[in-house]
């Protein structure tokens, strides 16, 4: 199910402002790729181009191509809605639907995709997804309570459950653990390791140890100066990036000598 992603000459704009320039990279199927880099360098922006969520912001557009198993996501005959059904996303801030119960939240994507499923199948999906996201034990007695009644970390895990319930080909995660305690963080990392066998995963993180722990490859983004577009500095095996990066800026950033 997992698919490879090839990005070529990608420039990303917010209206006139070029936020990210000239990205060129490949993401292997069934791997975890981590994006690291200083705040504002365009990690989230780039991540959102991989499921065409970038363009929902008024004025936002891209130039270049993002190919998934050889098919350009930005081709004229591609429906962004179809892309987003294949590429799941977990946001930086947890965003469960406040008007839905916990169970409804998990099932939201499936209901959207217009699949009719039986009550027992639905119950299975809810349990499986919540177990996967390490949330089942905490919420199994209150599946019909609103999702917004959970703690921040629980809400984030609910969002992960919601994203994986539809079994996407690719899973994008934008700092999924920034609202979590260390235990939940470890649980999510285990989850990522587990999901890797089925999915292609791209994760943005500010936590170096996390990048080192979970990812196979790491991409370092940087910003020459404010107002300049962010750029991909280098992408390589995670072990290489953390032991002997080719670029000095990467080493400075990783060792905390940045700025």
């Amino acid at each position: 199910m997992a698919q490879r992603i090839d990005v070529k000459d990608l420039n990303i704009f917010y209206g006139e402002f070029k936020a990210v320039a000239d990205v060129e990279m490949s993401v292997e199927p069934r791997s975890v790729t981590a994006f690291i880099g200083p705040s504002g360098c365009g990690k989230s922006t780039f991540l959102r181009t991989l499921n065409r969520m970038h363009e929902v912001i008024p004025g936002a557009h891209v130039q270049g191509s993002v190919a998934m198993d050889g098919v350009d996501l930005y081709g004229s005959d591609i429906d962004p809605v179809a892309v987003r059904r294949q590429v799941g996303m977990v946001f930086q801030r947890p965003n469960p639907f406040p008007t839905m119960s916990i169970a409804e939240n998990v099932l939201a994507g499936i209901k959207l995709n217009n699949k009719r499923i039986s009550k027992s199948d639905a119950d299975d999906v809810v349990e499986q997804s919540l177990r996967h996201a390490n949330l089942w034990n905490e919420v199994k007695d209150r599946l019909n309570r609103p999702g917004s009644g959970l703690s921040g970390g629980q809400q984030q895990r609910l969002c992960i459950a919601r994203a994986i319930a539809v079994k996407p080909q690719v899973l994008l995660m934008d700092e999924p653990c920034s609202a979590l305690d260390p235990i939940s963080t470890l649980a999510i990392e285990d989850l990522i390791a587990e999901l890797k066998s089925d999915y292609t995963i791209v994760i943005v993180t500010h936590n170096m140890q996390q990048a080192a722990r979970v990812s196979d490859r790491t991409a370092f983004f940087n910003l020459a100066a404010t107002g300049e577009p962010g750029r991909l500095v280098e992408i390589d095996e995670t072990s290489t990036i953390f032991s002997s990066p080719r670029v000095q800026a990467t080493e400075d950033y990783i060792s905390g000598r940045f700025g």
Partner: peptide, 15 residues
């Protein structure tokens, strides 16, 4: 409507 919730729906593949 919070942008966050709209994006949550869109990212799940909502029209």
């Amino acid at each position: 409507t919070p942008r966050l919730h709209e994006e949550a729906a869109l990212a799940l593949g909502a029209t």
